[in-house]
């Protein structure tokens, strides 16, 4: 798999990046977790491309461990929405933070 990490210098220097890449801002996402709906399938923390999520210690009323944000990844979410799309339990969603 090709890892297109636009933040790295490597991509800027390949000449393959859009010439106006600086006009695009990397979006910032805010993750909301509805803990009581979670069934701990693990899809969100497995398929988050930014590896923002991990299993938490919290036990919900049905005995499952919902996800939490990894330490140090608090502003790593880019609001791609993969966790929201892949969650079978409607237990997670992402809100894009708009900074004007």
């Amino acid at each position: 798999m090709i890892n297109l990490d636009f933040e790295s210098e490597k991509v800027y220097n390949t000449g393959r990046a859009p010439i106006n890449i600086h006009a695009f801002k990397v979006p910032l996402g805010k993750v909301h977790i509805i803990k009581e709906r979670c069934k701990e399938c693990g899809y969100c923390w497995t398929y988050c491309p930014k590896e923002v999520l991990e299993k938490s210690d919290y036990v919900n009323k049905n005995g499952y461990h919902p996800p939490r944000i990894k330490k140090g990844k608090e502003s790593a979410c880019v609001a791609c929405g993969m966790c929201e799309a892949i969650c079978p339990d409607f237990a997670i969603f992402v809100e894009e933070i708009k900074n004007e």
Partner: peptide, 28 residues
């Protein structure tokens, strides 16, 4: 960063019936 909130898709769901009956990891 994390807080409980209403899922934006809940308006398209019968959210009073959640959590649903499907097993953990089910694709449904």
């Amino acid at each position: 960063m994390i807080e409980e909130a209403i899922h934006p898709k809940d308006i398209y769901l019968r959210s009073d019936r959640f959590p649903h009956i499907w097993c953990p990891g089910c694709g449904l």
